[in-house]
């Protein structure tokens, strides 16, 4: 599914070269829920950008569904993002002055789907992300933080991606709402089988995943299985993985 081999990322600012990632290698299998954790400046955001094909590594290979996308052009990467990756951002990044449904359907516009098909799939994604149907036609600035993040999650789901990348998805939410959002991710993983890579600097949040990769100073220092944090909804962690 995801295979990173000796990924190196060096930023050049004038004469000064800064090595952000020093030979990072790991794999994520289909259906995994992986948290990448590390302090700020560890290189986890850069790693997330490379995994999301928003950026390309300086050297090394990145296989996504068997294809090495490390050397793809901008437009080819855009196609990869369109078809294989769903993003959830810390600050939601929803379009203001647009309804929840319209926001969710945005990726499908670039996929060239008809309006009817878009709305059908948008509604399906919103219900999977757990947003009440009464909010579908609300403008996003009328929604609460938790609801906005559900819309963002639905947007990440709508193109049926191979992998969902969540960058500090609880960073702008209070603890209670953050827990609900993390439970949503667990449901998406356990019940619906989505592959999720979560980037965070909070150990509490990383505990929701079933594997935790710790990054420090551009290298992976720990990669361990995690007994996932018991989630609030009774019985959910007992459900079979799909």
């Amino acid at each position: 599914m995801i295979q990173c081999k000796d990924i190196v990322k060096i930023y050049k600012t004038g004469e000064i070269e800064t090595t952000i990632l020093k030979s990072v290698s790991f794999q994520v299998k289909e259906g995994e829920f992986v948290a990448i954790i590390g302090p700020s400046g560890s290189g986890k955001s850069t790693l997330m950008n490379i995994l999301g094909t928003l950026d390309v590594p300086t050297s090394g290979d990145y296989f996504l569904d068997g294809k090495n996308v490390a050397k793809y052009s901008d437009d080819e990467l855009a196609d990869i993002r369109k078809n294989k990756i769903g993003f959830v951002f810390q600050s939601f990044n929803l379009l203001p002055r647009a309804t929840a449904l319209r926001n969710v359907c945005l990726p499908l516009v670039y996929a060239g789907l008809d309006r009817n098909e878009r709305e059908e799939r948008g509604k399906e994604a919103l219900s999977r992300a757990g947003l009440g149907a009464e909010h579908y036609h609300h403008y996003t600035n009328q929604l609460s933080g938790g609801q906005m993040q559900r819309v963002a999650i639905a947007r990440a789901l709508v193109n049926r991606p191979s992998i969902i990348l969540a960058d500090e998805p609880t960073g702008n939410l209070d603890t209670k709402t953050g827990e609900i959002v993390m439970e949503t991710f667990q449901e998406l993983n356990f019940q619906q089988g989505h592959t999720i890579v979560l980037i965070t600097h909070e150990r509490d949040i990383a505990e929701y995943a079933d594997r935790i990769i710790t990054v420090r100073d551009g290298s992976i220092v720990e990669d361990r299985k995690n007994t996932r944090k018991k989630i609030g909804i009774a019985g959910v962690d007992d459900r079979q993985k799909i």
């Binding site: 437009d75 855009a78 993003f87 990044n93 945005l106 670039y110 996929a111």
Partner: peptide
């Protein structure tokens, strides 16, 4: 700018 970034993240090409 943020909207443009988002559109690119969800698959908009330069041409789009």
């Amino acid at each position: 700018t943020r909207e443009i970034g988002l559109r690119k993240a969800v698959g908009a090409k330069k041409g789009d």
